[in-house]
Design a protein around this nucleic acid. Sequence first.
DNA 1: GTGGTCTAGACCACA
DNA 2: GTGGTCTAGACCACT
Lengths: 141, 141, 141, 141
Amino acid sequence: MIEYHVRRRSGVPAYQQIVQQTEQALRLGHLQLGDKLPTAKEVVAATAVNPNTVLRAYQELQRAGLVESRQGLGTFVVGTLGQAENSAAGDLRRELTGWAAKARSAGLEREDVLALITSVVDQEFPPTAEPLPGAALRERS
Amino acid sequence: MIEYHVRRRSGVPAYQQIVQQTEQALRLGHLQLGDKLPTAKEVVAATAVNPNTVLRAYQELQRAGLVESRQGLGTFVVGTLGQAENSAAGDLRRELTGWAAKARSAGLEREDVLALITSVVDQEFPPTAEPLPGAALRERS
Amino acid sequence: MIEYHVRRRSGVPAYQQIVQQTEQALRLGHLQLGDKLPTAKEVVAATAVNPNTVLRAYQELQRAGLVESRQGLGTFVVGTLGQAENSAAGDLRRELTGWAAKARSAGLEREDVLALITSVVDQEFPPTAEPLPGAALRERS
Amino acid sequence: MIEYHVRRRSGVPAYQQIVQQTEQALRLGHLQLGDKLPTAKEVVAATAVNPNTVLRAYQELQRAGLVESRQGLGTFVVGTLGQAENSAAGDLRRELTGWAAKARSAGLEREDVLALITSVVDQEFPPTAEPLPGAALRERS
DNA sequence: GTGGTCTAGACCACA
DNA sequence: GTGGTCTAGACCACT
């Protein structure tokens, strides 16, 4: 059963954190087709968020076609996402774990590692650019 | 000169994105002691956020002791952060770049890679847990 | 419940006055762990500042780890500060009150008393010096 | 010769800090009738503020009738302020110094002492209240 | 021209 | 209803 961790100070809305963690679990294969998500009550007990916040996250996931809520039964996985758990994933994970160990013994902290990683990933997998706002405005007015 | 990229749709407050990108540039050595940050005006021109949003980010960095704003002159780096650019960093970056290439040829998308990476990093460098809010409150009435 | 008093003519930013008064209340024990700060609305009603100014003060206190804001609930004290209310404080306060009475009967005004006091305190508890700005800059270009 | 100390981070405008420190020196007798203030150049060397900032402070003092600038000669004290250095001041200062020593041995820090003192002084010498803004507006419109 | 503060108002996240 | 973020614009302090 997936366990959510909500960081209130991160600035990311609580319901989005739940959505993102669910999506990530789907990519990693931690959640499989048919798996049951924890009930809102359980999430509330574990994360101290408001029940409505959980419901909103689950609705978002349902609209994305990833889960389905059944009255009185719970919420179940009905979709898949990505390739992170294909045949090569085991190797990739092993290698990355080794890399992380090396980084730690070189004295890097968690934040250093994250900075380095995002730097490399942004270079190798460039994020889709965002149009400058105002473009739409300029056309309209 | 550092260039900021603000993603408005990410849910993360714009001012925090600027703070985080500055911190990352400090960790990676892209910003050095004495370097000048772009003026609020320049950031506004590049990112289309409001000047106050930039000022707020800079003030946050100033309170963290990382930069110092001098009226009429600009904002300057006065602190350092982390170890991401020590002797071993070059090797680590090279290896990680190779790993990323392998991941791509295995068919993983950016989101898959990020999911895999955060999974491994969270395991190897466990984030500091956040105390449940309300702990202090529960003792009282 | 703490009551704030903002002096607009003092030259000190309103949000800093709120921060300082909160810190002082913590030192004096007027605010205890778990206490609730007034809502932004209440402060606005009492001091005629803008809600955003109050929020900014509370955020500053939150970053200092002294309070914690919970959406929809309010802002609560989660940290302590200093020793001004330990066992000896009662005696010290009594003595100081007596001293103030003597000063008044000697014809000193409020401003005279403040001048005398800051002079003595600065001598007995030297303030931490502030580094000359630009030290880091001078090395560079 | 008076020495100014400008704390840039205090939020109080630099020129006001110079004015206030001059007034305080007058009250304490550290500056006497006829004394010469440091030249703008000297203040600049000591505090790293802009010459214009010093000039503005001196102009303010001149408008208050406390000093007088003579071209090519310098700026001189021509007024007095308060009673902080009358006959009883010596005793009061001595007592206060003793009190401060006791406070320190009780473990209070500078900030604790300041909190305690302002609390007592505000009670014994209540600051003149400030009319709520809007009062004037209500009459006008 | 650069940064700092404040106001006003809008919209969102959360309880 | 409470706090969080952002925008827009004004005014001030400083170089």
